[in-house]
């Protein structure tokens, strides 16, 4: 295994929006390594969205408030970095892609960000053809946003930030508006970006069953604090997850019940196929 390098670090970090007297984030300590795929969950209003906005510098550059401690992205504190520089390090895909596509064609929307960071024509040409190919949206190149389906809009939103060649991709509930199949396709795209390009991904998602097979880290937040943080397999078997508003997938909940009853499994099975295989194997053994 390659040596892992730190990409994001929160050190004793707290934040409260100006005008609010209670902090939305309390004493956050979190380390994320390059190439991690982090699933971030927690009940609504727990501070997930705020945490994400601290990574790409919207906080403190766009929102004011009491900022304590440090957030370090790619070796440097966020608050010392210019927004411009952060935009090329951290890509942010918002819940509603509609509000993220500004231009009247997919191509022009991708070019928008590249012009903003002052790239020349040949560099823009290169990145444009690369990103269209990487996301498999070459056929959408000249389409206006209102001719795109919801799933396509989500891909275009990713294309717009991916063209900036960020090291980190942040997604705030990216599949909540998508139908089940489109959501699955979208998640496998994320997996590919993570594996193929080594992109660090942080995704907030309520339907965690979609991500249990692709993420390797899981962070659970509640009331502005991190309550669980670690390898996904270790975090997800915690019995108290649903008390923190987490939608525990049925196959996980099932294994928790069985463990309570004294059935010990070698591993924690994240998908139904593996779990069923194990059950069948046991039945054969008993036979």
């Amino acid at each position: 295994m390659e040596t892992l390098t730190e990409i994001i670090r929160f050190i004793n970090f707290s934040f409260s929006y100006s005008g609010s007297n209670s902090p939305i984030l309390k004493n956050i300590n979190l380390l994320i390594e390059e190439g991690d795929f982090v699933l971030l969950v927690g009940p609504s209003g727990c501070g997930k969205s705020t945490l994400l906005r601290c990574i790409n510098g919207l906080i403190p550059h766009l929102y004011n408030g009491v900022y304590e401690g440090e957030v370090i992205v790619d070796g440097e504190p966020v608050k010392n970095k210019s927004v411009n520089e952060l935009a090329t390090k951290v890509g942010f895909v918002f819940q509603n892609p509609e509000n993220q596509i500004f231009m009247f064609s997919v191509e022009k929307d991708i070019v928008f960000g590249l012009e903003n960071i002052g790239l020349d024509k040949t560099e823009i040409d290169d990145r444009l053809s690369w990103v269209l190919r990487a996301l498999d949206i070459e056929h959408l190149r000249y389409k206006p946003p209102y001719e795109l389906s919801d799933g396509q809009k989500q891909r275009v939103a990713i294309a717009g930030v991916l063209a900036m060649k960020p090291k980190i991709l942040i997604l705030d509930e990216p599949t909540s508006l998508l139908d089940p199949r489109t959501a699955l396709e979208f998640i496998s795209l994320l997996k590919e970006l993570n594996r193929k390009f080594g992109l660090t991904i942080i995704a907030v998602e309520h339907r965690i069953d979609l991500l249990t097979n692709v993420a390797n880290r899981m962070v659970v937040m509640d009331k502005g604090e991190i309550v669980f943080n670690g390898c996904l397999k270790d975090v997800i078997e915690n019995k108290n997850l649903n008390l923190h508003g987490v939608n525990v997938p049925p196959v996980i909940a099932l294994q928790n019940y069985l463990r309570n009853e004294g059935f010990i499994f070698d591993a924690f099975y994240l998908n139904v196929k593996e779990f069923s295989k194990e059950i069948k194997r046991r039945l054969l053994e008993i036979d």
Binding site: R53, N84, N99, G113, N116, V161, M164
Partner: peptide, 11 residues
């Protein structure tokens, strides 16, 4: 937010 995340107006 989306504009700022795409480095609008800072270069």
């Amino acid at each position: 937010e989306a504009m700022e995340s795409r480095a609008y107006g800072f270069s």
